[in-house]
Amino acid sequence: MAVVVEKEKEELGTELKEVIVEPMNYVFGKIMEILTIIGLIAMFVPGIIYIVTGKGYLSRDVVVKYWGLKASAFWKKVMGIKVFGYSWFLSHLTATDCLSIFGVCILAVTPLISLIGAEVKADKKYKVLIGILIIEFLFAIFRPILMGH
């Protein structure tokens, strides 16, 4: 049985019910909560500015014209490039649309960072399982950079 450090209290009438929330659950949830808020703000604020002004790495009016094409054809037509990896938006973070995509990126890594926090508090068996999960997340995220496609 896990060590109890956090208790969720539900009051009903005069009785007090206590629900055990494991430390690894608690840390996981807390980190996720904070990063989700940061990710949403990072996505929405520049994203709305981009939609309203139309100025970014990709011109809004050109995007509208070609968004019916499949992703590879779209990029060839709009920018004349073949997109792979993350450099196409990470190297243009001064542009509002790329900054908004960076917000999406934060949301995509939120479960990974939450797992790293939970790993510290997990017991032996779950340290292994969460460790495997962390490696998988890292590989999935960095595969395009490592393997070049």
């Binding site: 929405f44 590879s72 908004s100 995509i101 995509a108 939120t110 999935a140």
Partner: peptide, 25 residues
Amino acid sequence: TANAPAIGIYLTKGAILPLIVVPSI
């Protein structure tokens, strides 16, 4: 939330457009 890394696949292919994603979310 375990599907989050799959977002990376779409990002690396340039298949995430703020013009569609931001108003939708």
